[in-house]
Amino acid sequence: MTSSGADTNFSNEQMLGFYRDMLRIRRVEEQLGKDSLAGNLPGAVHLYIGQEAVGVGICSQLRDDDWIASNHRGHGHFLAKGGDTKLLVAEVYGRKTGICRGHGGSMHVADFSKGIIGANGIVGAGISITTGAAWAAQLDGNGAVGVAFFGDGAANQGVLCEALNVSTLWKLPVIFVCENNGFSEFSPYSTVTSGSIADRAKPYGAAHETIDGNDLIEVWQCAARAIRRARDGKGPTLIEARTYRHSGHVVGEHTFLSGTYRSEEEVEQKKAGDPIPAFAKRILEAGQASQADLDRIDAEITAEVAEAVAFAEESPYPDPADQGAGYMFA
């Protein structure tokens, strides 16, 4: 699919919904990035800026009882799957009102009621956990699927092979989404990764696709095929979504690293492929919305983020007296 021209498959409302969902992630991440640099947060944040089309293109068609697991760069997946902005921001602020009561923080945001079984600070860990959740769904026969989001760095963990093997063998309703953002932490793809990631599905006989992860519609359509395959009992799909990480691996990395692993020129060039302006252009050119509509959404999202920050700032820190055994053992 090309990135221009009207897409008659989606209503104006749906298109604006995608735009809103991507922009929410963008604005929350920009805010948290600023907060991190200002020293307002207890810990590090890894921003999803530039990759929004992947999370939204996939999660926008998942049900609440479908499972997703993500990685250390997990705010975007959390929001895309319907996680609450306020609860996310309060969690990253380390407040009692956060989705995990300030116990988990940026790298562990989870909302089980929304099928978000967790961002995960261990690279690759979500791959097998999602496969297990998908297995539970298969055993339950409830038609739910599991989606594991991970990066190109995690694709080099052996567990991807373990999960591809067993999920293909058992025809598990799972979708492996590798967001190839070009970097394994501070190492460019080609310095640590051999061949194509999508091709790693081939020897297992698993379905696989490589897509433009910056094109929301292309992501959506690929995900739709994978979800159909999964719900129909035809097993897993490995999707390699090519995208680009606009921010560093972690906010503030240049404050403690010398040298660089990518040129400013490269970053600027890649930013031209930013999925959000591209999607705005598409909507406008197709006449599915006006600039005023987009501006209104931006204003609403900006207000939503400000409200979330105020909520977090006004929230108490976790109460040391509320650290009882209830969190240690069920």
Partner: peptide, 17 residues
Amino acid sequence: TEHGFTGLGVGAAFGGL
């Protein structure tokens, strides 16, 4: 595949089993 299947077990537990 101990790493893989233990992760599966955790996921299945999260999934209600």
